[in-house]
Design a protein around this nucleic acid. Structure first.
Lengths: 209, 209
DNA sequence: GCGTAATAACTGACCGGTCGGTTAGTTACG
DNA sequence: CGTAACTAACCGACCGGTCAGTTATTACGC
């Protein structure tokens, strides 16, 4: 017999954090925060539970890394891309909501983690804070700016831009919550693309000057 | 010494279930489903944990009673009241959304339990089923009927009434989630009444024929 | 090159505390 | 008294976090 060529583990300091964060995103999206098991995250990342604590202080710290390193980089470009467009308001807002719907369709884990934040923020306020700072405020601020710019150009009726922003994105978010929460127990699915189109036709018909 | 005149407990078979359900609503609204402790529900209801199991089979069974006996009776009249109105569509929809906003403002536990359902449905699908059947389907069905009636009367543009329903209630629900989730960690509050007014002005301006 | 000592990445068993649900026994009350 | 409402102690399973020990890898002496 030659020596056993099968090491029990490898030392891969550089790759571990990314792999752990990726596994954590999957498990948090599937189970929520409290119900996510660190043993399972470790198993999926191919390490032992103890190794998690070499790279992250606590479970909340790991969640912060998930939002900061993976979720936020997916969401931010949606709003920023719209803000950077130099086009009539109607074109910009249609692009923005279309991209948002596309993102929520292409990676269901984003919506799933949003659900987690909503559902567990009372027991873990830190989750709400993390989400607010990394995802929500950048998105809302940019969106509000786009609407205000439309008003300054005389394209959009007067009114609180922030409330208009809720009017635009509310139905999209609710349709995502519907899909994640009630479709699995038999509710009729919603066609988000059509919802966005019909909603914008309705709102813009009344909102544009 | 005479005999101790202070009984350790009273036998109150008729009142117990209602008191337990009321306590359970409070605790579920505060902590969520998984994190709600049966000991605490029992304590607030003035009984021992064992007594809970004289009236309810499991924790999920208790949650079902909360939704069926307390939450649904608060929500159903909102939609049904609107459906029963014989008035122009604009009046009916304004009344419906106004009452919904009023309900969510007057008893925050309703919104809090909705959050619980959203956040924990993946781990406890039964919660979603209970909410869907007791709250959601009655509400959506009635709402869709109101919109379809408006279309039949020629007051509302053509289009899928169900998608319009999401367009109407989406912003209200999102503002409730915002209040429950992010205002406690420092986000700017929203004036729901104004949101409803401004949103309806915008949508109806484009939606009415 | 080649053994070997030093280092740190990593493992896995373990602990204290928690909680849904059970049940043996106690008490109110007709 | 009889009985059923009620209590309180209990159980088994679970899990975040810890840490003593193991092993891959590197540094170094020769």
């Amino acid at each position: 017999m030659t020596e056993s060529p099968l090491p029990k583990f490898r030392r891969r300091k550089a790759e571990r954090p990314g792999e752990i964060v990726a596994a954590a995103l999957d498990v948090f999206a599937e189970k929520g925060f409290a119900a996510a098991r660190l043993d399972e995250i470790a198993r999926r990342a191919g390490v032992s539970k103890g190794a998690l604590y070499l790279y992250f202080e606590t479970k909340e710290d790991l969640f912060r890394a998930v939002v900061h390193d993976v979720v936020a980089p997916k969401v931010r470009p949606v709003a920023e891309g719209a803000a950077a467009m130099d086009a009539p308001f109607e074109v910009v807002i249609r692009a923005a909501l279309g991209r948002l719907a596309g993102l929520l369709n292409s990676d269901r884990r984003v919506g799933a983690v949003a659900k987690v934040v909503i559902g567990e923020s009372r027991n873990f306020p830190e989750l709400a804070r993390i989400w607010k700072e990394n995802v929500l405020l950048p998105g809302i601020t940019t969106m509000t700016g786009v609407i205000a710019r439309g008003q300054a150009r005389g394209e959009v009726k007067p009114g609180d831009p922030r409330l208009y922003a809720f009017g635009f994105i509310g139905p999209v978010l609710v349709s995502m919550l519907w899909r994640e929460t009630f479709v699995p127990v038999g509710a009729e699915p919603i066609d988000v693309e059509r919802l966005v189109e019909q909603h914008l036709d309705a709102v813009l018909g009344g909102l544009l000057t």
